[in-house]
Design a protein around this nucleic acid. Structure first.
Lengths: 228, 228
DNA sequence: TCATACTGAATGAATGTTCAACAAATGATG
DNA sequence: CATCATTTGTTGAACATTCATTCAGTATGA
């Protein structure tokens, strides 16, 4: 319910837009791009700035420079800095959301495979890279004191959590485990977020590969009948 | 090595100071407090501000007001805003560090009990409360883009991680488990941080009690011979 | 030629820092 | 003890800077 699912914003359409933004640095200046491309370009520049400078140091000027455009451009397209940041957060939220749903779809009907896919999805390059993790962390740091961010900041929302609970419930039956599904689901999703946090901090001792190993170790420990 | 262990800053001494800061709101104005009390008072006000307003919105004026002192006071005691924030982070880091070390001490020689104590320590009221979690998160959000913060921001440092690895190694032998200790230690500590993150975000569906339950569920799953 | 996209200088508000003046403690002196 | 001098802590107004926002003007495509 928090997603912006306008007709022109399906994931395929977005991919095309993103591509346009990325490749066409030549055609950036002087009224060449459509409104939507421009906005996406500014959002990407915002993510860059958040990743490089952090939330507190991200300025309108830096975003405009990053996009190779003039100073007043952001207010023209987004009205205010706050609205730009909200649009950026929404963009990342939608992307994350679409990504895990697609992964779940791909997994077929086997719940064990579904859970495995969800875990893998979290550490996929397209989602889990230095740039985006840094931007997420920047938002998280401000979310608690900004009501507007709160709903979008979790990235993993209530529905996501419910999917985990349902999977834990199903696996419990087929594997005769004794855990309490909501508790195990919390434990599992918390670990995934914790691994993200390690990657975000970028202390180099944790890589995407070791994080995935740790996640698999957890699955093997919690669901030995399925992943042992 | 990152701790500031000056003679006057043992944890007992700090407790006394903290107490002084907290109770004596009457004797705040007009040159009554010692240098150390004043500094601690400003650090506490900084934590308050970070928790209430977030990193980006924390101003010198707000800190001074929160402490009930004048505008110029912070620069007198800490020279600059940045140094105040670093001192605040250092203070929280030292407190966290002292806390888990003390917990480990109390646990005696049984490794299973030691691990259990470490987990409990993380969710102790004195460490794990809305105010301090919010302040931690505020720092985390800025840490990646500020080298000065990085070493102090993890709160759980390399030594802490090593303790976990050692405990996992010991328990593996006594329980004939098959996991790889460093991987399991990462998985475990990531889950603890992830639970903190949930509490930080304050979505109300995760409380200190449910977080502790989830942590215990993990222990039971990973070390069934010891916590089953 | 008309609407739309865009520019960049001007503006004003917010905020970190400085500093001269002041007050309280401490120490020196008789 | 009393007085004065010096150090130390504190204040708040002034200052400089940074930055979001505005807007009159320009360029572009339809």
């Amino acid at each position: 319910m928090l997603e912006t699912v306008t007709p022109m914003k399906t994931s395929e359409a977005r991919d095309i837009l993103t591509e346009t933004v990325r490749k066409g640095d030549a055609e950036k200046r002087g009224r060449k791009a459509s409104k939507e491309v421009r906005q996406l370009q500014l959002i990407e520049a915002t993510i860059d700035s958040l990743a490089k400078r952090g939330y507190a140091e991200t300025t309108m000027a830096d975003v405009a420079d990053g996009a190779g455009l003039s100073r007043g451009i952001v207010n023209f397209h987004f009205e205010s800095k706050e609205k730009l940041l909200i649009a950026t957060l929404q963009h990342m939220y939608d992307e994350y959301s679409a990504h895990w749903r697609a992964s779940l779809q791909k997994a077929g009907d086997d719940p064990a495979r579904q859970l495995q896919q969800l875990v893998w999805a979290d550490f996929d390059r397209s989602i889990c890279n230095k740039r985006k993790l840094a931007a997420w962390l920047a938002f998280w740091g401000e979310a608690k004191s900004r009501p507007t961010y709160q709903a979008l900041s979790s990235s993993r929302d209530a529905y996501y959590q419910q999917v985990f609970i349902d999977l834990c419930t199903t696996l419990k039956e087929s594997g005769s485990y004794t855990y309490d599904p909501p508790v195990m689901a919390l434990s599992l999703s918390a670990m995934l977020e914790g691994l993200w946090l390690r990657l975000m901090m970028g202390t180099e001792d944790t890589t995407r590969e070791t994080a995935l190993q740790a996640a698999n170790a957890f699955l093997a420990a919690a669901f030995p009948k399925h992943y042992g």
